[in-house]
Design a protein around this nucleic acid. Structure first.
Lengths: 109, 109
DNA sequence: ACTATATATCGTAATATTGCGATGTATAAT
DNA sequence: ATTATACATCGCAATATTACGATATATAGT
């Protein structure tokens, strides 16, 4: 064993899990915050901002990109990363919907 | 290596990462959905609902409980699990705030 | 006390993640 | 063409996750 049984879950559950997993690391949360804060796209600045090696940051960026949360555009020597608005909004919607399904009721344990 | 460098991140970043990580698995998303749907708390029903072994479900429940997202109350032979309203709302607030920091601007890559 | 039921925990195998140094690749400048 | 800069990728070691069978624990009913 050791691998998730994706086949027994819905497409939606798997997709949400992938997105959340991409965000579920302090370094990647910090990267997203930095990208959002700088509005325009950043790249190697992240290596200096956070205290991680270049290879590590690059790997984290790849994971965020794979999940579709960010997008990178080559700009000369460097690469400019920014939020993917479509995916970002999609995720926001889905999470919002997910959280709002819960409603506190007294008859619980 | 192989372990996250939590010391270089803020308390908030680490906390959010822990919560998201707890939710970042299709089985645990399914479990949360089931718990919310059934409103009142469930337990071993989850084993039948999802197609996973009892030990596996128990482990997933433990992770959700460790993150504080759910809480379990012993009820005779069985254990009743339900959402922890405080943590749930906290997480909802934090995520909402996080997502709303982003605002689309044209001058991007 | 004995048995059934429900859940938790242990131990284990397979696989994934994290982080980094070293190295590759691709553009810009001289 | 050569060199510098910026990233990406490879390979590795340490650790974490996922899933499950087997076993422990704890309550309820007889």
């Amino acid at each position: 064993m050791g691998l998730t049984k994706t086949e027994i879950f819905t497409e939606e559950q798997n997709r949400l899990a992938v997105m959340l997993k991409a965000m579920a690391h302090p370094a990647r949360i910090a990267i997203l915050q930095q990208i959002i804060k700088a509005n325009a796209c950043i790249c190697g600045d992240l290596v200096e901002e956070l205290g991680l090696a270049q290879a590590t940051i690059s790997q984290h960026l790849k994971e965020l990109k794979n999940a579709g949360i960010i997008q990178g555009t080559i700009e000369g020597v460097s690469v400019c990363y920014c939020i993917n608005p479509t995916v970002w909004n999609e995720l926001q919607q889905q999470l919002s919907a997910f959280f709002s399904t819960y409603e506190l009721k007294t008859n619980c344990c």
